[in-house]
C-alpha cells in the first residue's frame, strides 16, 4: 500500500468522513437558498441607500402572488363627461371610490344626480361624485331590481321582477307603471386604458414596496408558511456547515502541521 493510500483509509471509515459527505450534500442542495438569503440580506442592508421603501412594485404577478388582485371584470358606463365604473367590488365615479358595492347593472343620468344600480341597491351620486344615498330594501320597489333608466320627464324608472316603477323627484317613493314608458338606456362601454390603469392603481392603494418583497424573500414569508420553515432549516444547516467547516479546517491544519513536523 502506498503512503497516500494509507493516509486516506482512516478518513473513509471514521465519522469525520460521513460529516464531510453531509457537509458537501447540504452545501450543494441549499446553495441557491444561501445565495438568495445573502443577496437579499445585502440589499436590505442598503434599504435607505437604494430607497427600497419608496420604490413600488409594478409587476402584476407579484400583486397576484400577494393576493392583491382585482376580482371580476371592469364594468364601465360613460355618463355625460363622467365615468361610473364597478371594479373589484367597488363603485367608482371617474377614479374616485364611492363605496363597496355589488355588480353594476346599469346607470341613469337625471338632472341633479346620477343613479347606479348595483346588486340590489341603487346609489344616488351627485354630479360632483359624492354619494348622496344608497337605496336598498324598503327604499326600493318590490321585486328583484333588473335595470335603471330615466324617463323623458327626467324621472328614474326602475325595472324589477314585478314590473316598471317610477320614482318621485327626490327618489323617496315609487309608483308602479301600468304601461311602461319608453325609457332611455345608457349602455356599458369599454373604459379608456388610462382610466383602467387608474382604477387598478386605486385598488392597489399604496401598493407593495420592494423593501417588503425583499424582506419577505429573505425571511421566506414570500413563499408562505412553508417558506419560513425552509429558511429556518437553511439557517440551521448554515450553522452546521460553519461548524463542520471550522472542524475540518482545524483538523486539516493539525494534520498539515504534523506532516510538516514529521518531515
Amino acid at each position: 500500500m502506498s503512503p497516500a493510500a494509507k493516509r486516506k483509509t482512516p478518513l473513509r471509515r471514521g465519522p469525520g468522513r460521513a460529516l464531510l459527505r453531509w457537509h458537501r450534500r447540504i452545501g450543494v442542495a441549499l446553495s441557491a437558498i444561501f445565495i438568495a438569503i445573502c443577496v437579499t440580506g445585502i440589499l436590505l442592508n442598503h434599504t435607505v441607500d437604494l430607497d427600497l421603501d419608496n420604490k413600488r412594485v409594478e409587476a402584476d404577478w407579484i400583486y397576484k402572488w400577494y393576493g392583491i388582485e382585482p376580482e371580476g371584470e371592469l364594468v364601465h358606463y360613460k355618463v355625460d363627461e363622467d365615468s361610473i365604473s364597478h371594479f373589484s367590488g367597488n363603485l367608482y365615479f371617474n377614479t374616485d371610490l364611492i363605496a363597496p358595492s355589488g355588480v353594476l347593472k346599469g346607470v341613469a343620468s337625471l338632472a341633479p344626480f346620477h343613479l347606479a344600480l348595483t346588486g340590489s341597491s341603487l346609489a344616488m351620486i351627485s354630479r360632483e361624485g359624492e354619494l348622496i344615498e344608497s337605496l336598498s330594501g324598503s327604499s326600493l320597489p318590490a321585486g328583484t331590481a333588473i335595470s335603471i333608466h330615466s324617463s323623458e320627464t327626467g324621472r328614474a324608472i326602475l325595472e324589477t321582477s314585478e314590473g316598471f316603477f317610477r320614482a318621485d323627484a327626490d327618489l323617496l317613493s315609487w309608483e308602479k307603471l301600468e304601461t311602461p314608458l319608453a325609457p332611455s338606456f345608457i349602455n356599458a362601454s369599454e373604459a379608456a386604458p388610462d382610466l383602467e390603469a387608474a382604477l387598478v392603481a386605486s385598488f392597489r392603494g399604496e401598493g407593495i414596496s420592494w423593501n417588503r418583497v425583499i424582506l419577505d424573500i429573505h425571511s421566506g414569508n414570500f413563499f408562505g408558511p412553508i417558506g419560513k420553515w425552509i429558511v429556518d432549516f437553511s439557517a440551521l444547516c448554515l450553522i452546521f456547515l460553519t461548524l463542520t467547516g471550522v472542524w475540518y479546517t482545524t483538523k486539516y491544519l493539525k494534520k498539515a502541521r504534523e506532516r510538516a513536523l514529521s518531515k
Binding site: 442542495a29 441549499l30 400577494y66 413563499f223 408562505g224 412553508i226 417558506g227 425552509i230
Partner: peptide
Amino acid sequence: LLKPIFTLLLLALAYPHTS
C-alpha cells in the same frame, strides 16, 4: 438526497401565498 429537498422547495413555491 437532493430530490426530496428540491421537491420541498417546489412545493413551497407552488403554495398559494394569499392572505
